[in-house]
Design a protein around this nucleic acid. Structure first.
Length: 969
RNA sequence: GCGGAUGUGGUGAAAUUGGUAGACACGCUAGACUUAGGAUCUAGUGCCGAGAUGUGUGCGGGUUCGAGUCCCUCCAUCCGCACCA
């Protein structure tokens, strides 16, 4: 009997499924271990060989932990809401649920073939109503919560309402967009609509007019992390800014905790840095500059109320501690201030340079611009504003080096020197960050410096002994000069002093800004979670829990309505299983909603009463090992952390970081094949003869290509356009394709599915080969060269057990060498697994089997232990051999991991490498018991040593016992 | 520009604390065997060279008895972020 992987693998797949071998226990004496993969979006293309890479690694680790006596939770599911199914539905009219179902079936089939030890009884699908019921429920919790800065956590909205009724909002320190104060009486006097509007500014899930990334081609808004260089992540369509009424999540409330929490998790520095960068914390202070009112031009113009959102009450300027408010709302508070007292508020990280301010720059969109611009400059400012508004976000970014700006004619007053400071507008200042205005200090900031040079504005130097004739001095060390009370101070010290003074004079206060924006939570799509929200008199209300889930209603088409409403607006009232109020919310939730908490649902997937039972969540706790791609650094991984912290705050779970340890597997790239077409559109020239021709490279399906050689007949029948193709061939009559390494994708015809490899070599070979490719984290091109080597290893392993169909395992005592080989292997395998070095273990197994083969070892004592060691990597063959050795079928998955015994490694002799001046010359086998002196003496008397000494006396001999000898001449 | 990662044979790679560079595989060369199998076995394979006290881990320096590994400079590739005040 040869190694018949087809039968073996089929047999054990069935066995595991029938016996639910890998079902995790909710209560156990064993310690728990939670191994999780990022669940896939089930696309129509099926799994390619890149997907299983991470799954195999996590499966190996999960199986290893079971052998180590852990109760392991290792689940899998599907992130099954998403755009491709919907796009397909738009084209074909087929309900996305059907497509999704088919794709999932295909994924499941592919996954099963690879022999994963998933507990399928816990499968979740984000698009199933049983699951999204709880996504909706969590949304409700966010809606019903506000962030209390005093307790530094999210609290029930009830506590806020109670406080309003008692004392108004004066004593409340909340993360909010609301900046008016009201008394308890004023609160009670408000209408329901007014109260709703006020609370909306506090809720963690809130409805607001916000500038959103609108993608016309996709017909929906996108989150910041879904926009890459001004184009949509999916499809690469242009994205524009649009003001829309949208649901958002107040993630900014968690900015600081999302930052500090990174220190408690074992993730790579790369991912942590990306998140830190995305959160973008900067510490500094706010400063208010009055606008010069002596300038008659600057006050003549009255503000236009229609452009403002909340203009009823003048704001209390001391309510400005608004580190979490978005830029536009902060701008708004400026406009509301009395028109007789215009002030420009700026945020700066360098308050120490305040005496170096040369000019102010406002973003062109800054609301104060119209009010302060003098008639003389009005035309220029209008022209500049128009030009800026016509530029897309992308143009603005790609046009960084082009310095533009426009003087407004207005002047601000320096709060310390009372000097007049010209106020400019320029699009290098972003309306969406800070206050949308900067105090420009050309001597200390390169952008300000360039701006000043470009427009011939004087540059004042406020640094001691620093030359600024060529560039700004942006270092944060040195001494301040020419700065009144700051002169002579170290920069760091000056910052503190400046902030203290600014606060003392009421000009502003120390403040921290974050670049992190609140997350837009509405999508104008069909295939997503409906909101548990209805409207009555335009006030949003939550649907009661008993009516959840709000299921997706049937619609006639999956397109927006003629009025541009989302697809759900097409649904008849009767199509909603639950309908309330005047209308239901017709937006749906974004893709990241379902994936922000799925790791919790696996703990208790069938619970109909709660999203997860508290005891179960306490038991399984954090994900101990999370494996997935690094591309989710600013999306999923940030949102999941946010929701975890929120659920922790609200007392539903006992931990506030979801993923304790994470490994990011590298992408597996595809190898595309190309044919080269001449301009006549029908002649294809072979790779080596394409020089000198005008050719267009065309992707050709890699299944038509073997070792770069094109199957010409298959190519002709591939597509009708190639039926009558002509060829210019190699001398031997073959057509050789060109190749390139690219991302795997359907459109490039370079997708390698695992299926054919499983068929050809078996799942155990595929599992080991994917690990053998190299370190898990590394990006690597897919190449099946070498898979034979791994397959041959398994055959060789088989031959240790079987010869000509006969089991040849003996009860004989294992030899010393065999014991040494095996225990050396245990140690290495264990060490490598503990440091997640999955690739080196394949070599360890190969070395072990090679040595046992050379030793003709067929000892059961060794071989049955070896089978256990191999189980995580090659579970099918391990089960088969384990059973053949007389054990209960299926029990190897829970056998005890072999115990390493160092005694078997003890040798009488140590083979010392002997170096002369650091160059290895020969080796000397010496008793292990020798001390340094004895080693030196023994080595120096050896004839080889005499040869290399060339009669000279060594200057020094270094002996590291057990390691090395180095002779210095 | 800033941040992160990577650079080792013809190829994928290994070398965990500084201690025999290239393990293990692929490929290649030569041979054996055969019931011709994606088989097995033997020997070889970093480079130059007839030979070796030659040379060799992106380049150039440094520390050390000893550096792929530690330090400094530079180069290349990939990935993030990018007027964030």
């Amino acid at each position: 009997m040869e190694y018949n992987f087809i039968d073996i693998e089929r047999k054990w797949r069935k066995h595991w499924a029938a016996n639910q071998t890998f079902k995790a226990e909710d209560t156990s004496e064993k310690p728990k271990y939670y191994v999780l993969d990022m669940f896939p979006y089930p696309s129509g293309a099926g799994l390619h060989v890149g997907h299983p890479l991470g799954y195999i690694a996590s499966d190996i680790f999960a199986r290893y932990k079971r052998l180590r006596g852990y109760n392991v939770l290792h689940p899998m599911g599907y992130d099954s809401f998403g755009l491709p199914a919907e796009q397909y539905a738009i084209q074909t009219g087929q309900h996305p649920a059907i497509t999704t179902e088919q794709n999932i079936a295909r994924y499941r089939d592919q996954l099963d073939k690879i022999g994963f030890s998933f507990d399928w009884s816990r499968e979740v699908r984000t698009s199933s109503p049983e699951y999204y019921k709880w996504t909706q429920w969590i949304f409700k919790q966010c809606f019903n919560a506000w962030y209390n800065n005093d307790t530094d956590k999210a609290e029930s909205i009830e506590t806020l309402v109670a406080a309003f009724e008692q004392n108004g909002n004066a004593g409340i320190n909340a993360v909010t967009d609301f900046d008016e104060t009201f008394t308890a009486e004023a609160w009670k006097a408000k209408s329901e609509k007014e109260q709703s509007d006020v609370l909306m500014a506090y809720r963690l899930a809130y409805l607001a007019d916000s500038w959103v990334n609108w993608c016309p081609a996709l017909g929906t808004v996108l989150a910041n992390d879904e926009v890459i260089n001004g184009l949509s992540e999916r499809g690469g369509h242009p994205v524009e800014q649009k003001l829309m009424r949208q649901w958002s999540m107040r993630i900014k409330a968690y900015a600081e905790r999302l930052l500090t929490g990174l220190e408690t998790v074992e993730w790579t520095d790369a991912i942590k840095d990306i998140q830190r960068n995305w959160i973008g914390k900067s510490v500094g202070c706010s400063v208010k500059f009055a606008v010069d009112l002596d300038n008659p031009e600057s006050v003549r113009e009255t503000r236009s109320d229609s452009e403002r959102v909340n203009s009823e009450t003048p704001s209390d300027s001391e309510q400005m501690d608004s580190k979490t408010r978005s830029g536009s709302e902060q701008l708004d508070s400026e406009t509301r201030s009395d028109s007789e007292k215009h002030t420009i508020e700026v945020f700066t990280t360098r308050p120490d340079t305040i005496f170096g301010v040369g000019f102010m720059v406002l973003a062109p969109e800054h609301p104060l611009v119209d009010e302060i611009t003098t008639d003389e400059f009005r035309a220029g400012v209008e022209a500049y504003k128009t030009a800026a508004s016509l530029k897309s976000e992308r143009d603005r970014q790609s046009d960084v080096k082009n310095i533009t700006g426009q003087f407004t004619g207005a002047y601000a007053i320096h709060p310390f020197t009372n000097e007049k400071i010209p106020v400019w507008i320029g699009d290098y200042v972003l309306a969406s960050y800070g206050t949308g205005a900067v105090m420009a200090v050309p001597c200390g900031d390169q952008r300000d410096y360039d701006f000043a040079k470009h427009f011939n504005i004087d540059i004042k130097n406020i640094f001691e002994n620093v030359d600024i004739s060529e560039a700004a001095y942006a270092e944060k060390s040195g001494k301040i000069a020419n700065s009144d009370f700051l002169s002579g101070l170290e920069i760091k010290e000056a910052m503190q002093v400046a902030i203290a003074k600014i606060e003392e004079l009421g000009l502003g206060k120390g403040k921290t800004n974050y670049r992190l924006r609140d997350a837009i939570f509405s999508r104008q799509r069909y295939w997503g979670e409906p909101f548990p929200v209805y409207y009555k008199n335009d006030i949003p209300y939550l649907v009661e829990d008993v009516h959840l889930p709000i299921e997706l209603p049937e619609v006639d088409k999956y397109l927006p309505t003629e009025d541009g409403e989302p697809p759900l607006a097409r649904a008849e009232q009767s199509a909603w299983k639950h309908f309330e109020g005047d209308r239901m919310e017709t937006n749906t939730m974004p893709g990241w909603a379902g994936s922000s908490w799925y790791f919790l649902r696996y703990m208790d997937p069938n619970n109909e009463q709660e999203f997860v039972n508290r005891e179960k969540a306490d038991y399984w706790n954090q994900v101990d090992l999370y494996i997935g791609g690094s591309e989710h650094a600013t999306g999923h991984l940030l949102y999941a952390r946010f929701w975890t912290k929120f659920l922790y705050d609200r007392g539903f779970i006992s931990f506030d970081e979801p993923f304790k340890k994470m490994i990011n597997q590298g992408m597996i790239l595809g190898r595309s094949s190309f044919v080269y077409r001449l301009s006549d559109n029908k002649t294809y020239v072979t790779s080596s003869k394409k020089e000198g021709h005008q050719v267009i490279p065309i992707h050709v399906d890699i299944s038509l290509v073997d070792n770069d050689k094109l199957d010409i007949e298959a190519f002709k029948s591939w597509r009708t356009e190639y039926t009558n193709a002509h060829f210019i061939l190699e001398e031997d009559g073959s057509y050789i394709c060109g190749s390139e390494v690219e991302k795997m994708s359907k459109s490039k015809f370079n997708v390698q599915t695992p299926d054919e490899l499983v068929e050809k070599f078996g799942a155990d070979t595929l599992r080991m080969y994917e690990m053998f490719l190299g370190p898990l984290e590394q990006t690597k091109p897919w190449d099946t060269k070498g898979i034979n080597g791994v397959h041959n290893f398994l055959r060789k392993l088989w031959r240790l057990f079987y010869h000509e169909g006969q089991l040849i395992v003996t009860d004989a005592e294992p030899s010393k060498e065999a014991l040494k080989t095996f225990h050396k292997t245990i140690k290495k395998v264990e060490d490598d697994l503990e440091r997640f070095s999955f690739n080196t273990n394949v070599s360890n197994f190969m070395i072990c089997v090679n040595e046992l083969t050379d030793q003709k070892c067929h000892s059961k004592a060794i071989l049955e232990q070896l089978v256990i060691l191999l189980t995580p990597y090659a579970p099918h063959v391990a089960e088969e051999l384990w059973e053949a050795l007389g054990h209960t079928a299926g029990s190897v998955s829970f056998a005890a991991f072999p115990q390493f015994n160092p005694e078997y490694l003890v040798e009488a002799n140590t083979n010392y490498p002997v170096s002369f001046n650091g160059k290895m010359r020969f080796t000397a086998a010496l008793p292990t018991t020798f001390n340094a002196k004895e080693v030196e003496e023994a080595v120096m008397t050896m004839p080889e040593a005499q040869k290399w000494l060339e009669g000279k006396a060594p200057k020094k001999v270094i002996v590291v016992p057990g390691k090395i000898v180095n002779v210095v001449l």
